[in-house]
Structures are given as structure tokens and as C-alpha cells.
């Protein structure tokens, strides 16, 4: 595990350094990949126990809106306050729903989470004080009290995202390798046996839902602050769908694969929007089919392989 973490940290440092010379068209998808990747990491967390949330849009949006509202109305400008606040808000939003959702699996879990995200979408669209269906703009945040100079803004936001990626990925890696992380994999295989061995499956899935919500909230806040704009679409089911798509592409074994998958998706999306503006959904759909068909275990399986007692679990 320590080897994976060290490798990860070194990679992040290298990427951060390389990004100084990166062109803008690459930097933006990379930043989006980082902030969306954090959300997808939460989906992967739940997928390890065999549940797929089709409604992370709900907690993605709540994190974004919370950060944006704090910036706009509470006069808080520092990203290092806004982003964790977004995470916290989303975790609190998820908390009352967690025990209820934890009773469901498979299609039901997916559809219930989807419904919740659509309810939030409906509320956001109809609430004029929150900007209605147009949403509203967010000013660029400060970082540690410092204003970001305009020409360094994009890089600054990218490094901010990388910082959260680093911190959260370390935490998740430790979690995946912990006792709880192993039992999560067992839940996916045979829930009944886990209960018979003495652990509460419902409590674990419920907790994971809240943790994933925290991650989504942070990802949402980062996304909103980077884009400078938040809107109800963050909670729309197609947003959730794309995040799940990234999770499938990543697989549930490697943390790094999550960011790689998100990045690939962002590139495919930008590429499609640029060259096939009228058929980018077609391109995305075809890409998804190819991934499901030929990479059933996701990208992570390419380098994790069949290692049994692996510290890269």
C-alpha cells in the first residue's frame, strides 16, 4: 500500500510540474477530470460493495450550490473553506437518506438514488432565488487568502484540485486496504454470509453512501468554482450517468484508474463536442458500449491483473 501511495504522490507532483507548460485546452479537461474523478471515486467506493448509485448528481450539486452560496452570500472567499464546506453539506444531505437506501440493492438502489437526484433537480429548477434553470455565476475563489492572478487562474485551480485529489486518494487507498475495505468486497460477493459472520451490511453500505456523498460534494464544489458557474444540471440524471460511466471505465480496484478514466472521458467529450457537435451523444454512447464490451473490469484491470494478495486492491 505504501508503494502505491508513494507512486501516486510522485505522479501528482510530476503532473503538477508538467502542467505549468500545459496548453489551456489540456488543462481544462484535466481539471475537470480531477474534480469529477473525486466524485467517481465515491461511486467506485460503493461499487466495491456491489451497489451502483445512479444519483450522485444530487450530492454533486448540493456541494456545488453550498460552496457557491457561501461565496455569494456569506462572503467566504477561500477555496480551502468553500470546498470542504461543500463536502460537509453533501454528507449532511445524504445522512437522513442513508439508512433508507441501504435497504436496497441493484436496480432499486440505482433507481432510488436517481429519483432523489431528479427531485433535487426539480427543486433547483423551480427555485428562482437559486437562479432557476440557469443557475448563477460564482466568482473565482482565493486560495489561502491569496487572489489568483488571471493568467495563473487555470493553473491555480488545477493545482487546488490536485491537492484534494492527493489527500482524498490517500484516504481512500487506506480505506480500501483496511478491514472494512475487504469486507466491502465480501458484501459484493455474498451479503448473507457477511451478516452471518457478525457484521452489519446495512450499516456499512449506509456509511459508504455518506462518505461517497462527502467526496461528491467536494468534487461538486471544485467543479463549480472552476467553471465559475453552477446550475441545476449538476443534479440531472445524465450527469450522474456520466459519472457512473467513468466508474465502469475505471473498474473498482485501482484509485489511479478513476482519474485516468475521468480524463479519458473528458477528452472524448471535448473531442466529440468539437468534431461531432451534433452527434457527441452518439459518440459517447458508442464509446460506452465498447468499454462495457471489451473492458468489463475497467481500466484498472489492465495493470492490476490477477494478483491475489495484492496491496493494490
Amino acid at each position: 500500500m505504501f508503494r502505491t501511495i508513494s507512486l501516486g504522490m510522485v505522479s501528482i507532483a510530476v503532473i503538477a510540474l508538467a502542467s505549468i507548460w500545459s496548453p489551456k485546452w489540456l488543462l481544462f479537461p484535466a481539471t475537470m477530470a480531477a474534480s469529477h474523478g473525486i466524485v467517481t471515486l465515491g461511486i467506485v467506493l460503493m461499487m466495491r460493495s456491489g451497489v451502483v448509485s445512479f444519483g450522485q448528481g444530487m450530492v454533486f450539486a448540493s456541494g456545488a450550490y453550498c460552496a457557491a452560496l457561501l461565496a455569494k452570500h456569506a462572503g467566504i472567499n477561500d477555496a480551502l473553506v468553500l470546498v470542504p464546506a461543500g463536502g460537509l453539506a453533501s454528507a449532511l444531505l445524504a445522512l437522513p437518506f442513508a439508512p433508507l437506501l441501504a435497504r436496497y440493492r441493484a436496480i432499486f438502489f440505482a433507481m432510488l438514488t436517481l429519483s432523489l437526484s431528479m427531485v433535487l433537480y426539480g427543486i433547483l429548477v423551480k427555485t428562482e432565488t437559486l437562479g432557476g434553470s440557469d443557475g448563477f455565476n460564482v466568482a473565482r475563489p482565493q486560495i489561502l487568502g491569496m487572489e489568483l492572478p488571471p493568467d495563473m487562474a487555470n493553473l491555480g485551480m488545477f493545482w487546488l484540485s490536485l491537492a484534494f485529489v492527493g489527500a482524498l486518494s490517500i484516504m481512500m487507498r487506506i480505506y480500501f486496504d483496511s478491514s472494512r475495505g475487504l469486507v466491502a468486497l465480501a458484501i459484493r460477493e455474498n451479503e448473507l454470509r457477511v451478516e452471518y459472520l457478525g457484521s452489519s451490511v446495512q450499516r456499512m453500505i449506509g456509511t459508504d453512501f455518506v462518505v461517497a456523498a462527502f467526496l461528491a460534494g467536494i468534487g461538486g464544489a471544485l467543479t463549480g468554482l472552476t467553471l465559475g458557474h453552477i446550475e441545476p444540471n449538476f443534479s440531472y440524471w445524465t450527469t450522474s450517468g456520466e459519472l457512473v460511466f467513468a466508474a465502469i471505465l475505471a473498474g473498482h480496484h485501482s484509485v489511479a484508474a478513476v482519474y485516468l478514466a475521468s480524463f479519458v472521458l473528458e477528452l472524448v467529450r471535448s473531442f466529440s463536442a468539437l468534431y461531432f457537435p451534433n452527434t457527441w451523444q452518439l459518440a459517447l454512447g458508442l464509446f460506452l458500449l465498447i468499454v462495457i464490451r471489451f473492458l468489463p473490469q475497467g481500466l484498472g484491470s489492465l495493470w492490476i491483473g490477477n494478483r491475489q494478495r495484492s496491496d493494490k486492491r
Binding site: 500500500m1 487506506i174 480505506y175 486496504d177 483496511s178 478491514s179 472494512r180 475495505g181 475487504l182 469486507v183 468486497l185 465480501a186 457477511v194 459472520l197 457478525g198 457484521s199 456499512m204
Partner: peptide, 16 residues
């Protein structure tokens, strides 16, 4: 997994 479940608390951090 069986050993982990038999403990009173499942750890978030201790390696499995």
C-alpha cells in the same frame, strides 16, 4: 473477512 467481521469494530484504517 471472517476474522475482520468477528471483531467488535471494523476498522477504517487498520490493514486487512
Amino acid at each position: 473477512v471472517a476474522i475482520a467481521c468477528s471483531q467488535s469494530e471494523l476498522s477504517f484504517t487498520r490493514s486487512s
